[in-house]
Design a protein around this nucleic acid. Sequence first.
DNA 1: GGCAACTAGTTTCACTTGAAACTATATAGA
DNA 2: TCTATATAGTTTCAAGTGAAACTAGTTGCC
Lengths: 168, 168
Amino acid sequence: MPSHSPSDPDASLQAPDHRDESHELDLGQFLPYRLNSLADRISQALSRIYGERFGITIAEWRVLAWLSHREELTAKQIGEHTRMDKAKVSRAIQSLEGRTLIRRTQSSQDQRVHYLHLTREGEEMLGELIPQAHAWEAELVTTLSSGEYRDLLNTMGKLERQLARLEG
Amino acid sequence: MPSHSPSDPDASLQAPDHRDESHELDLGQFLPYRLNSLADRISQALSRIYGERFGITIAEWRVLAWLSHREELTAKQIGEHTRMDKAKVSRAIQSLEGRTLIRRTQSSQDQRVHYLHLTREGEEMLGELIPQAHAWEAELVTTLSSGEYRDLLNTMGKLERQLARLEG
DNA sequence: GGCAACTAGTTTCACTTGAAACTATATAGA
DNA sequence: TCTATATAGTTTCAAGTGAAACTAGTTGCC
């Protein structure tokens, strides 16, 4: 098993010529596919926790998670953070409000906007859910050294920035 | 911006105690979320190539890609490789067959199974599409050194194996 | 003030999805 | 051989989806 090589230090090797540009495609070696299928599997596994144990969907979970560390968010802001379209956010909010996990208060400056807050009930649920999510993540990454973990996040950050550049 | 640190060498640091187990959740630091949103963005960007330029869906693209380097696949095998459920595979195949990008031949040993093949037309499309997909991927990863790229795939492999272990 | 353009959030509609039921075929066992 | 069970692939159905239309409220400008 190839080890976490130190890799020719910090940069200057440009295009990763890891493979020549053939007219065949090995999806197993194609980063977008690999990433997508890994992320999918992780999402599905994790959604067993919040889906089965807590009865919430991915969208709802994302809304709650954002509210857990920033109160006073609006639907729009949540949409921006989570990159979910506004219809999806709206529906998640309706469902969470129906289950009294969150509450909405209308802004007095702008009648169109509603601030979202966790209710006590919502906080209690998150108090159980979040440690379980962290524990699951910890199990997932136990086989990584902390260096590998850090490098992974780092590399993902680079890809995100490059993506923004390509999109921009 | 933290650089690609060499990280305490090869291993033995067990649980990445990168963060304590709090009752708040910063989605931006939560690996499943980060991975998922990165993969999503990449998928969407890439699907602009095969969607807009070639008029095929992700599912169709996956079927074609697998056929590009292994002829004689059945619907079931494609489902296993791509982790798509059989209904989705079936629909992708119907659509591709309708556009004469693939052809199906019934197995003589087992009347239930159909082998899938690319048609000349399908091969021609892939001959254009695959280099564009590779080129796009190359642009995405240009900011990574080849070491970082290798480490990324490596780490993803570890996560995949750990996931398989957790799933039992 | 009044009109046009804009924005937050909701609803509608046509399409996609996955789970389950179904069809047709194959295999194993009594 | 007959019956039960399994499998490949398709279809159905109910639920979920995003794009676009819509509602209600706001801002800019004359």
